[in-house]
Amino acid sequence: MSYIELNNIRKVFKKDDKETVAIDDISLHIEKEELVSILGPSGCGKTTVLRMIAGLVEPTSGEVFVDGTKVVAPGSDRGMVFQDFALFPWRSVRKNIEFGLEVNGVPKEERTARVDKYLEIVGLEKFADARVHELSGGMKQRVGIARALVNHPKVVLMDEPFGALDAQTRNIMQAGLIKILDKTDQTIVFVTHSVDEAVFLSDRIVILTKRPARIKDVIEIPWPRPRDRASPEFTALRKRILTELEQENVMDQGAPADKPPKLTGGLLNRIRHRDRPDSETGDK
């Protein structure tokens, strides 16, 4: 059995008699210490997949297993990092990172030691007593990452963690994450809609179709990290994935007969523009 298993997952959202099939049928196995990225157009169901592993959303059918145990509820063995950081504004940086240890009843002394260690790993020792609103976006997300890691979870689920950051900070954070991985061998499921980011970080990239999501392609990347964005194979792979994602976008332009998109031209264009996976400026 794999470390993380999603077996025939299907998710239908029901809202006011309207049914949205978010995820059609996804099976995915992830090994220990792997970093798997999930790529796909916006609204295709990436967040939903992550939230099902976290136990925050229940699949309509199918099962999720983490380390042999079926996921039925959220727990500290599955940490999550949010795009909007989701830090507790009434707590200091230290207290934010300490939250998980506190609710899990870890003794005070061990708590302090562990928080100190992760403050150092994310380079925020000097900001331990700062308030969240005093931090920059990149620093906030480093708190978010430390807060998830300090619990020693089996897997960290990252939902577009660098999506709210500017291009430069984003690259710094990606490099920082790789350094952290050197020290912790953390298993990570990483949702992004940046192809560049996925190729830069992942052991494996899972490409989803547009909604209802299915797995379109899985790409292994055996190259060591850190990777050179300018290398020919990096560029080539990036291009290949972009083409695959473009297909997803081109397909809904044709408005297939079974599911015509009920969107006006302007809105459709806007969404498509946002979806363009290379629309981020992070690559130099």
Binding site: R51, A54, G55, L56, P74, G75, S76, R78, G79, M80, F82, D84, A86, L87, F88, F99, G100, V103, N104, R147, A148, N151, L157
Partner: peptide, 13 residues
Amino acid sequence: EPSLTDAAKTLGA
């Protein structure tokens, strides 16, 4: 913010 309660739950609360 629902993300705050979600965060707390994934931290084991």
